[in-house]
Structures are given as C-alpha cells and as structure tokens.
Amino acid sequence: MAGSATNLDLNTNSSASVDMAAFTTTNAEVNASTSAGVTLSVKDNLHGKVSTSAKISLKNQPRNVQVDKSTSGRVVM
C-alpha cells in the first residue's frame, strides 16, 4: 500500500502481515499480536501495543514512541 495520512489506526493479529513501507502517516495507533507483522513509516507519534511475538517495523524514527511490549513483542527501527 502506498500513500499518506494524518492519522492511522491499525489492529492486526494471527500471523497477519501488513506491508505499508511506502505509506507515511503523521500519527499512528498500532496494535499487533500473535505473530503479526506491520511495516510502516510514522513521522511524529506512534502509540499502541505489540505482544505475543508480533513485530512493528519502522522505516524511520518517529519523534515519540509509546508502545507497550509484552510476551516477545518488539518494535524495530
């Protein structure tokens, strides 16, 4: 998916893969669980939760990252 937005609200789970590497958003709320994978670019604020071996991969360094991590969940920049 390519494009841009001011705000993004994304929930994914159960081994889903969401490739938004060509998508840029100013603010994002991302919740990923159960081995899900999300790739995206966030300019300012990333909030959310990642758990149960899920991964959020960022193409850049947002100004503010507040993501709760549990059960091997991770955020990769």
Rank of each mutant, 00 (worst) to 15 (best):
S72K: 11
G73K: 00
T12W: 02
L8I: 10
S33G: 04
V38E: 03
T52S: 10
S17K: 12
A16L: 06
R63C: 09
V18L: 06
S53K: 10
A2S: 11
T6E: 09
S15Q: 12
T34S: 15
N60K: 02
K69S: 02
R74C: 08
D44F: 10
T71C: 02
A36Q: 00
T12E: 05
F23V: 03
S4F: 14
A32Y: 00
A21N: 10
L8P: 13
M20F: 09
K69F: 01
V50K: 00
V76G: 10
H47C: 11
R74D: 12
E29M: 13
V42F: 01
N45H: 09
A5T: 11
L10C: 00
S17L: 15
P62N: 07
A2Y: 14
K69Q: 07
T12V: 06
S70V: 07
A16R: 02
L10V: 08
V42M: 00
S41M: 09
M77C: 07
N31I: 07
N13V: 09
S51F: 03
L46N: 00
V75C: 01
T25Q: 02
A32C: 05
P62T: 03
S57F: 05
V18E: 06
N13R: 14
A36V: 03
A32V: 02
M77P: 08
N31V: 00
A16C: 03
S53F: 06
V65D: 05
N7D: 14
P62A: 04
R74E: 15
G3R: 07
D9N: 12
K69Y: 11
V50I: 04
A28L: 01
K43Y: 08
K55H: 08
S41F: 04
Q61F: 06
G48T: 03
A21S: 12
N27M: 06
S14I: 14
S17I: 15
A5R: 01
K59S: 11
N13D: 13
T26H: 12
K49D: 08
Q66P: 01
S41R: 09
A54E: 03
A16I: 12
T6K: 13
D44G: 06
G3K: 08
S53D: 07
S4M: 13
S17V: 13
K55E: 10
V18Y: 01
V30D: 03
H47P: 12
S57Y: 14
R74L: 15
S41V: 15
T6Y: 07
K59N: 14
T25P: 01
L58M: 00
V38F: 02
L8F: 10
T52R: 01
V18G: 05
V67Q: 11
K55Q: 09
N11K: 15
D68A: 08
A16N: 02
S4Y: 11
S14W: 08
A54Y: 06
S72L: 11
S4G: 08
T25C: 05
A2L: 14
K49A: 12
T24G: 06
D68L: 14
A54L: 11
T24C: 05
S51H: 05
S53L: 06
R63P: 06
P62Q: 05
S33A: 02
D44C: 13
S57A: 13
G3C: 07
K43G: 15
N13M: 09
N31G: 00
S4D: 14
A5K: 02
V75N: 01
N31H: 09
K49Y: 06
S15R: 11
L40G: 02
V67T: 07
T34G: 10
G37M: 14
